[in-house]
Amino acid sequence: MSTTAAVNMAVGVAQEIHADDAVTTRSALSRAARAGAARLVRTAFRRTGPAGTAGASGLP
């Protein structure tokens, strides 16, 4: 009986550690995705004119 409890506890601890690592990784990926999306938005709305001159809208 005590062996079963010890094995069950060890499996539970391993699962908790794995879950914590997964949450940490997901948080890091989410932060990286948001940073990348913000960078893309800033690049998409950068104002450049003909031949890259600053200040013109660049729209037809």
Rank of each mutant, 00 (worst) to 15 (best):
M1T: 07
S2T: 01
S2Y: 02
S2F: 00
T3Y: 04
A5F: 07
A6L: 13
N8S: 11
M9W: 08
A10M: 10
G12R: 04
G12L: 03
G12M: 04
V13R: 06
A14W: 03
A14P: 00
A14Y: 04
A14N: 11
E16V: 12
E16N: 15
H18L: 13
D20S: 14
D20F: 10
D21F: 01
D21E: 09
D21K: 04
A22H: 07
A22S: 10
A22C: 08
A22N: 06
A22V: 08
V23Y: 06
T24Y: 07
T25K: 10
T25S: 11
T25C: 08
R26I: 08
S27W: 08
S27Y: 12
S27T: 14
A28I: 03
A28P: 02
S30F: 11
S30P: 02
S30Y: 05
A33Q: 14
A33H: 13
A33L: 15
R34H: 13
R34Y: 14
R34M: 15
R34V: 12
G36W: 01
A38C: 09
L40D: 03
V41M: 13
R42W: 00
R42C: 01
T43M: 13
A44V: 00
F45K: 11
R47V: 05
T48D: 09
P50E: 07
P50Y: 05
P50W: 03
T53H: 02
G55C: 12
G55T: 07
G55L: 13
G55K: 09
S57E: 09
P60I: 01
